[in-house]
Simulated assay, not measured.
Amino acid sequence: MFDYNKVKLTYMYNSRITGLGYYVPDNVVTNDDLAKFMDTNDEWIQERTGIKERRWIKEGSDDSSSVMGAKASKIAIERAGLTPNDIDFIVFATLSPDLYFPGGGVQLQEMLGMRTVGALDVRNQCSGFVYALSVADQFIKTGMYKNVLVVGAEYHSSGLDKTTRGRGVSVIFGDGAGAAVLSRSEDPKRGILSSHLHSEGKHAKELTVLAPSAKHWVPEILESNDENDESYFPYMNGTFVFKNAVVRFSEVIMEGLKTNGLEATDIDMFIPHQANLRITQFVQKKFRLSNDQVHSNIQKYGNTTAASVIIALSEAWEQGRIKDNDVVVLAAFGSGFTWGSVVMRW
């Protein structure tokens, strides 16, 4: 049988990040704020997740996944030294689009006043940005596009069960968006070196929202009118997700390092999906990474799903924690289950 794993493709171009930006709502919601309307407290939340506060879009705000994505994109495009008309393609990752359809990518294209470039929506939840970045990377490496805008944006707060019943999930998630401009480079030793993607659908219902869906659509929703129906809110088997996450994180990081002939000691900056501080700490300890080699911001933003990796990457870069020639590893795990990693040299 032909072994595709032994085939190494050689591309004419490489891709590298030339611009980064992120946006989070001004409204800060602390753990003590949550305790005012559900049975929880700061100690309980920090002990289980590491989260101290998160950003939630304030009622009456014009912000949404697409709007936040556009705000982050403007920053990233400007930092890349480009204009919206220089962008050839959009890859937009979110689980919380403004509309059931069409997706957020076309809304972003309109909001930024772009020409009629293509827009692709990625629905891979927590690993959404890693998947989106890998797609953009291939478009550039094959020579199809020169500049691709990659966005991760989430508006979680409008869809959470903000009662004691839903506290196990609702305390975790926050709103926000991040964007990266991925551009063509002819330097094979800089930029994205490899990406690695996986899925295991048999665990799909361990982290899911069951409705609305094609099986539970508008007539059923209107007919039921049941305030106790939990199918509209996120469900997570927390312990099961944690156990799978720490295994898959480790596997996919090792896969990326091995592919590029690197060791854990070569990592200058590890940017994990901000799912749970305990998961990050477990992986950090396993790979013997110092605090200087890991960037965590879940403490102040919570889990922003498809936006978490790009917000953290943008923040780390802004703080000067990522420098030229650094080896940067991105990794994410989430609903699906899906997981992935990207290895790049800055």
Rank of each mutant, 00 (worst) to 15 (best):
I77N: 03
G118E: 07
D98N: 10
E110H: 15
R79E: 04
L112C: 03
P97Q: 02
L82T: 07
T83A: 09
G118C: 07
D88K: 12
T94L: 01
A80Y: 07
V106P: 03
D98C: 10
M111A: 13
G104E: 05
I90D: 08
S73R: 00
R79I: 00
G118F: 05
T116I: 08
M111H: 06
T94A: 02
V91F: 08
L95P: 04
F101D: 08
L99T: 12
Q109K: 11
R79A: 03
P84I: 06
G113L: 12
N85P: 07
M111Q: 12
A80I: 06
A72T: 02
G113S: 14
A93Q: 06
P97T: 03
Q107M: 10
Q107C: 02
E78F: 00
A80T: 06
I77A: 11
S73N: 02
A93G: 14
P84R: 13
I77G: 04
I75D: 00
L99G: 03
L112K: 02
V91C: 08
Q107L: 12
A80P: 06
I90L: 09
A70H: 12
G118H: 05
L82A: 06
P102L: 13
L95I: 11
I90P: 09
A93P: 11
I87L: 09
L108P: 03
L108M: 09
S96Y: 05
G105L: 13
A70I: 09
S96F: 06
G105M: 13
Y100E: 03
F101W: 10
F89Q: 13
G104L: 08
P102I: 11
M114C: 11
I75W: 00
D98I: 10
L82V: 08
T116D: 15
S73W: 00
F92P: 01
I77P: 07
G81H: 14
D98G: 10
I77V: 11
D98Y: 09
D98E: 11
E110N: 15
A70P: 09
G103K: 02
A72V: 01
K71M: 14
Y100G: 03
L82I: 08
T116K: 15
S73V: 00
T83D: 07
